[in-house]
Amino acid sequence: MRTLVIGGGASGKSEYAEELFSALEGTKYYIATMMPYGEDSLARIEKHRKARRDRGFCTVEHYTDLAGLSLPTKGAVLLECLGNLTANELFYEGDSEKGAFEAIMRGVEALSEQSSDLVVVTNEVFSDGLDYDESTLAYIRTLALINRELARRFDTVIEVVCGIPVALKR
């Protein structure tokens, strides 16, 4: 079963995805994608690392080239999140929009082959106007295309609103 979880900032999407993930069978691999950069992200990463240890998840930190990731065994996989992964491909690796899209689609499929169940978290960043610089608009477009393509391929798509799951596709 492949599930895409989408939500805005602080919507409760991660908590919901982790709840789904906790209920799955087998070894649980949590793929964390946030690059340790700046005070805010370091604090966030530390907070999340501690929470995951407490829940018995195996954390794999992987920032770019998801297709190159090899898990030790087949298991349940939570990928958190596409927003970070897309930013890493575009702004750290310097991929083109098409390059980032293809790298992430390849990566998600490669991960999918190694997983019994896959939960992918992504971000709703599309409803706040267009008053952004060109590189941010490129990011928005790329993430939007990835979301659409994964929503088409996956079995289930859940939007989280104020911590409440709303099914977009079942």
Partner: peptide, 16 residues
């Protein structure tokens, strides 16, 4: 909640 994470720290904190 549905825009890009704000660059400004206070705005980010507000949104969270």
């Amino acid at each position: 909640s549905c825009g890009i994470v704000p660059l400004d720290r206070a705005e980010r904190e507000k949104r969270e």
